[in-house]
């Protein structure tokens, strides 16, 4: 699909070694934000390239938020919510799951690597999972390279 999408992967790796990824993490207040807190309390070290935005539920993450973040130069967006059947708001995370699946397809159609957007279930007790996710997602984004939107608007 890359031929029809010139701003995609072909340019993405051009940044070189001093690429510092910008990663936005939407955390739901009840599980994932608390999981991130637990990672902190447990002093689990991780790459410093992510910025957490707290929302009440992962289902609050409007597709527009993700697309705007990409537009403004985010190299990666992670949405983290409660595990299935564990949503504080009964079933918001199921909506999130569907939305993110669709959004990933949409990103691909626009020529972005869909792995720039990831959904993870991280419970309040999973500090370690939060850390591992951050380490792994940062690695993924470093491999994909800088977003073609970096520096643009």
């Amino acid at each position: 699909m890359s031929s029809a999408t010139p701003n995609a992967q072909s340019q993405e790796k051009a940044e070189g070694d001093d690429f510092v990824p910008k990663i936005i993490v939407f955390c739901c207040n009840w599980c994932s934000y608390a999981g991130a807190d637990l990672a902190g309390v447990s002093r689990l070290q991780m790459p410093p390239h992510f910025r957490v935005i707290r929302v009440m539920c992962s289902a609050r993450v409007d597709p527009e938020f993700v697309l705007r973040a990409i537009q403004k130069g985010a190299d990666g967006v992670l949405v983290a919510g409660c595990h299935p059947a564990d949503c504080h708001y009964i079933g918001g995370n199921y909506r999130t799951r569907r939305r993110i699946a669709l959004l990933r397809m949409l990103l691909q159609q626009f020529g972005y690597d869909p792995d720039r957007l990831r959904l993870e279930w991280i419970s309040a007790g999973e500090g370690e999972k939060f850390q591992k996710t951050m380490v792994d997602f940062t690695k993924t984004i470093e491999e994909i390279g800088a977003s073609p939107m970096r520096g643009g608007d």
Partner: peptide
């Protein structure tokens, strides 16, 4: 929870204290 806000195809729903504007400004 804000599920309705993220769902509304018209962008007609937002949340108090977690408005689209606030969250987008943060991002």
């Amino acid at each position: 929870c804000g599920c309705c806000g993220a769902t509304c195809p018209e962008g007609a729903i937002t949340m108090t204290h977690y408005t689209d504007q606030q969250l987008l400004a943060e991002a």
